[in-house]
Design a protein around this nucleic acid. Structure first.
Length: 639
RNA sequence: GGCGGUGUAGCUCAGCUGGUUAGAGCAGCGGAAUCAUAAUCCGCGUGUCCGGGGUUCAAGUCCCUGCACCGCUACCA
């Protein structure tokens, strides 16, 4: 028996809305699962949601709901999106489920008593010191502060020390490094492996695994005043989902003995490739076999982000292209593992070209001819046909090639091979010109050609099934094929179709999309502006703006983006530090009349004192300083 | 600044461990065919393989270096 295979996606943060990034990972997982099942491997596919943490609690409060009610609601948006995409996970893990919470506590207990090789405790307590906002009920970083105050509550945070438990990551890194270098735990693609090894080379501190003040979380069994921090809680899902702590048989089958594959985008590399293996080692558990980190989508060149509002909603794509075509289009934009750009109009051309013109039209032209000329029944094969051997050979080796591709995560190659076969078949059909044979009454040869084409369609319907399960099932029903013959083994040989079997075709499998129809990537629907934080005029008045002339400018040593400026604000001269070095050279900014906030509290940045802030407009990578239209002396007040 | 990545036809990208005239799809031009979803098939590319060095009998493919862009990271009051 081949090893069972266990495939995971990250669990998605419940505060997010599903976008094509989430969808992509999950589609890949679904594809792999379906493909391995075709090849007779037992496979298990888990996805889910990460639902704890102070941000979730905050969002729930704003929505006027209890935490769990809020989560129940938003989890549905993920489940619906996945259902729309025909994603058939075996288990949907919620970190708020009792099962997960109980098992995480068992993991924590285990870690609590665990020792490192040197006999040190894996978990130790220490103090975390930081700025704490009582309004937010959380620590905030210096960076988040506005004018020394919490941006949300406009209050000064207090310096606070809190007890935290830490995980002794450093003790495990040498061993992890060995395992990664030797590929016992494979990090893919190669460049990501290099990146992780590079990270190990840098100084990595131990990580904090608990929070004292976060109430919406899983309490530590050995200290009820603390709750588990995100890494422990979220990463553990991979084992709690298959029965760690409550179903030894399942856990043994999938985790301990199975081939474990974690799929994710490259942004969470550190946690998965270092924190997670360390936790598992400390708990004495098997490590995953493979981690595959895929790339990011950019949309028309820009990174997808909430703030840019260019996130693509998979539901909108599904509404427009259907689940199967959406899966196809997302998977084929770029090879798995690298970043790629997505352009709205490309989706339509590619849909029409690959799916409608090549595959859909092949089905139409072949089946219609069978319907009209062969009484709607699959004709008998005929071997003496020019070009048939080559076509057969290409079709018969497709399964093997695809399997090899999938094993190495070369998803686009596997799909590309199937489409190439479709093209070759269109060419074969064209070259043999069966419509001429109809007129000449050569029915044997005609039947042979049509039989061969049906065979290719059957084989393709198996190999593209993991990508487009719905449409391939549809195509298979055209040929009266059932699911029993939906196996990779069945795709390896020609002459599986039984002559005389009825065919039927109700409508085109992939109807062409008219170009005039607006290309929908789901992109913009710009987020509605919240107008509940309008300012009172008096509040605005607190900000003092003045025109200032830049007298002198120089780069700040050791910082790429900082310029140290001497400015004249009329009444006095001041020094400010501005993060504009990437856009303005010292020469260029010298002499400019800019707008400065003059009543900010002084701050020290990179060891340089700054007393004021320049105003600038920024969009994506573009940044331009705010200046004045006509000449006016430095010091002029702005209101 | 540190780490990683990318730079190949108009566009999106393939090119594994170096080896004949550098490829695919899309778009464009010309043609064939008419079974089919106005779909298909054929033909057409003088591309500085980012620049500069080097290793080699041989480099898009390895090494060094420069440039541009992207991501993570530090500093952006």
């Amino acid at each position: 028996m081949p090893r069972p295979i266990y495939i995971t996606t990250p669990i998605y943060y419940v505060n997010d809305r599903p976008h094509i990034g989430h969808a992509y990972t999950t589609i890949v997982a679904d594809l792999l699962t379906r493909f391995y099942r075709l090849s007779d491997r037992d496979a298990y596919f888990v996805t889910g949601t990460d639902e704890h943490g102070s941000k979730v609690a905050e969002a729930a409060q704003q929505a006027g709901l209890s935490e769990i009610a809020f989560c129940d609601q938003t989890v549905e948006t993920f489940k619906t999106a996945w259902e729309n995409l025909s994603l058939s996970y075996d288990y949907f893990l919620r970190t708020t489920s009792n099962r997960h919470k109980q098992s995480v506590q068992k993991i924590l207990e285990k870690l609590h008593t665990a020792k490192t090789e040197n006999g040190e405790d894996v978990i130790y307590s220490d103090f975390y010191e930081g700025l704490y906002c009582t309004g937010c009920e959380k620590f905030i970083t210096e960076k988040e502060l506005v004018d020394g105050k919490c941006p949300h509550h406009k209050t000064k945070p207090e310096k606070l020390k809190e007890k935290n438990y830490f995980f002794r990551l450093s003790a495990f890194l040498p061993r992890i490094k060995e395992l990664i270098e030797s590929d016992e735990m494979q990090i893919l693609p190669e460049e990501r492996k290099r990146e992780v090894l590079g990270l190990i080379g840098q100084e990595l501190g131990d990580f904090s695994l608990s929070r004292e003040r976060v109430k919406w979380g899983i309490p530590l069994p050995f200290d009820k005043n603390q709750s588990a921090y995100v890494w422990i809680d979220a990463l553990s899902n991979y084992i709690t989902a298959v029965g760690y702590g409550d179903d030894p048989d399942s856990f043994d089958k999938w985790w301990t003995k199975g081939e474990v594959i974690h799929l994710m985008a490259k942004d969470i590399l550190k946690f998965h490739c270092l924190y997670w293996p360390a936790m598992l080692m400390a708990a004495g558990l098997e490590l995953p076999d493979k981690m595959f980190l895929h790339g990011f989508f950019t949309v028309d060149g820009d990174k997808m982000s909430k703030t840019l509002g260019n996130q693509i909603d998979p539901n909108e794509m599904v509404a427009f292209y259907g689940a199967d075509a959406t899966r196809y289009l997302l998977l084929t934009q770029f090879p798995l593992g690298v970043d790629g750009d997505v352009q709205a109009k490309r989706f339509i051309t590619q849909y029409n070209s690959d799916l409608a013109n090549d595959l859909g039209n092949l089905v139409s032209r072949v089946i219609k001819m069978v319907l009209v000329n062969c009484g709607g029944k699959i004709p008998a094969p005929h071997k003496e046909i020019e070009g048939l051997d080559a076509l057969m050979a290409q079709a018969e080796e497709l399964a093997e090639r695809s399997y090899a591709h999938i094993k190495h995560f070369r998803v686009t190659n596997a799909i590309g091979d199937a489409i190439s076969l479709v093209r070759a078949t269109n060419k074969f059909f064209n070259d043999r010109a069966p419509w001429k044979l109809v007129k000449e009454g050569k029915t044997d040869e005609l039947g042979g050609i049509l039989y061969a084409c049906c065979e290719v369609i059957r084989i393709v319907s198996i190999l593209l099934y993991p990508v487009m399960p719905g449409k391939m099932t549809e195509i298979r029903s055209v040929l009266s094929l059932d699911s029993a013959s939906l196996t990779l083994a069945n795709a390896r040989t020609f002459f599986e179709l039984v002559p005389g079997t009825k065919v039927k075709l109700d409508q085109p499998v992939f109807p062409r999309i008219k170009e005039e129809k607006e290309a929908k990537t789901g992109a913009p629907a710009p987020a509605e502006k919240e107008d509940d934080n309008l300012l009172d005029i008096s509040e605005f008045g607190k900000v003092e703006l003045r025109v200032a002339e830049v007298l002198k400018a120089e780069k700040v040593e050791g910082a790429d983006r900082l310029l140290k400026l001497q400015i004249d604000i009329g009444s006095e001269k001041r020094q400010v530090v501005a993060g504009v070095a990437e856009h303005y050279s010292p020469d260029k900014i010298m002499g400019m009349k800019v707008v400065v906030v003059t009543n900010l509290k002084p701050a020290t940045i990179r060891g340089v004192e700054s007393r004021g802030m320049l105003l600038a407009a920024k969009k994506g990578k573009k940044l331009t300083l705010v200046t004045v239209a006509d000449d006016i002396p430095a010091g002029a007040k702005i209101s």
